[in-house]
């Protein structure tokens, strides 16, 4: 298969939805990195867990911006099948 074939045939289904393996890897690196990183570098009186959760959210937001959802939405009008 060649280059621009994301539309069909390049994705795998994981947990009820379709993902691109490369994008998944990117998202995992960002999310795991930021949450674990946040927990480890935590400072001050704030519990490290807060840093970890915050890191997870940051990782999630970054990957949401970088990665396009692999879903094709079609709106059906009433009565259509």
């Amino acid at each position: 298969m060649e280059g621009d074939n994301k539309e069909r045939g390049n994705l795998v289904e994981i947990w009820e939805d379709n993902v691109d393996i490369k994008d998944l890897l990117i998202a995992m690196i960002f999310c795991v990195g930021f949450s674990l990183g946040g927990y480890v570098v935590a400072f001050g009186e704030t519990p490290p867990l807060i840093f970890g959760l915050g890191g997870g959210v940051i990782g999630f937001i970054i990957s949401s911006i970088l990665i396009k959802p692999k879903r094709k939405l079609t709106m059906l009008k009433e009565g259509e099948e």
Binding site: I14, W15, D17, N18, V19, D20, D23, L24, I26, A27, M28, I29, F30, C31, V32, G33, F34, S35, L36, G52, L53, G55, G56, V57, G59, F60, S63, S64, I67, K68, P69, K70
Partner: peptide, 14 residues
């Protein structure tokens, strides 16, 4: 707007 990859990533991160 919410990619499945990011959700799996967040979950794995947690």
């Amino acid at each position: 707007y919410i990619p499945h990859e990011a959700l799996i990533g967040l979950f794995a991160g947690l």
